[in-house]
């Protein structure tokens, strides 16, 4: 049992995005999800710095530094795209107009609390950016992250130890081991990596996990059956 690669995790998230949905991909690993959107999905990507219908990275030499994404990297505009100021952009985010926001995280708690902006390390300045606005405002908040930390501790916890971004907002968690839905009755395993037993997943997860029926199987390429 090998945990999903970063590419496969991004692909798994991309395959779940609703067709024709309005979606914001957070900076870092979530941005990578754009590379795996199925052709014809019709998903319209938003970026907080004032653009709707984000297109792919331009070819080398074609970069326009007035046309960048939230990660400050050059992008392109798809046909039907638009530009707007930050106030209108955050009205989209805070006002419940985005169908899904995909965010990275340090920790998610069993009731969907999100900690993704600081580990409280005073050595470097903290940054909050627009993650908190997305976490409060998008209709669905999906987290994608490694299931455990580099030293093997669960990132899915009883209570977040790091400062919170928002309380009770995460609706679904995609990790390199599984897909978990955050429900009113706790965390429910929706899909499990091929070859991983549910008990082995529980061993790697601090918060309690429920299983309803047979979980779907996640293949190494990130597809789910």
């Amino acid at each position: 049992m090998t945990p999903l690669s970063r590419d496969a995790l991004a692909r798994m998230v991309a395959l779940h995005l609703p067709e024709q949905g309005f979606v914001n991909l957070g900076i870092g690993a979530p941005t990578h999800v754009a590379d795996y959107l199925p052709a014809g999905s019709g998903v319209i990507l938003h970026s907080e710095n004032g653009i709707l219908n984000v297109g792919p990275k331009p070819a080398a030499g074609e970069e326009d530094w007035d046309l960048i994404n939230a990660g400050k990297m050059p992008i392109s505009l798809r046909s039907g795209g638009s530009y707007f100021d930050s106030s209108l952009s955050f009205a989209m985010m805070r006002g419940g107009h985005l169908d899904v926001a995909v965010l990275g995280a340090f920790q998610v708690s069993k009731n969907g609390d999100l900690a993704n902006w600081t580990t409280g390390d005073n050595g470097s300045p903290p940054g909050i950016g627009g993650a908190i606005d997305l976490a409060v405002g998008a209709k669905s908040i999906w987290v994608m992250m490694d299931h455990v930390t580099k030293d093997g501790r669960s990132r899915i916890v009883e209570r977040c130890g790091y400062p919170l971004t928002a309380r009770g907002v995460v609706t679904r968690i995609f990790t390199n081991l599984c897909i978990i839905d955050v429900t009113e009755d706790g965390l429910a395993v929706r899909a499990l990596l091929d070859g991983l037993a549910i008990e082995a997943l529980r061993d790697r997860t601090e918060a309690p996990l429920r299983v309803m029926g047979d979980p779907l199987t996640i293949r190494q390429d990130g597809s789910v059956a």
């Binding site: 907080e48 100021d85 930050s86 106030s87 955050f90 985010m93 805070r94 005073n122 050595g123 470097s124 300045p125 903290p126 940054g127 909050i128 950016g129 627009g130 908190i132 606005d133």
Partner: peptide, 23 residues
């Protein structure tokens, strides 16, 4: 350069969520 002064305590930071900042 900001981080150096932040660590040295010579600059004050008021951290504001981006949407709150613009609003």
């Amino acid at each position: 350069h900001f981080a150096e002064q932040y660590r040295a305590g010579t600059v004050e930071l008021e951290l504001v969520p981006q949407g709150t900042l613009v609003e």
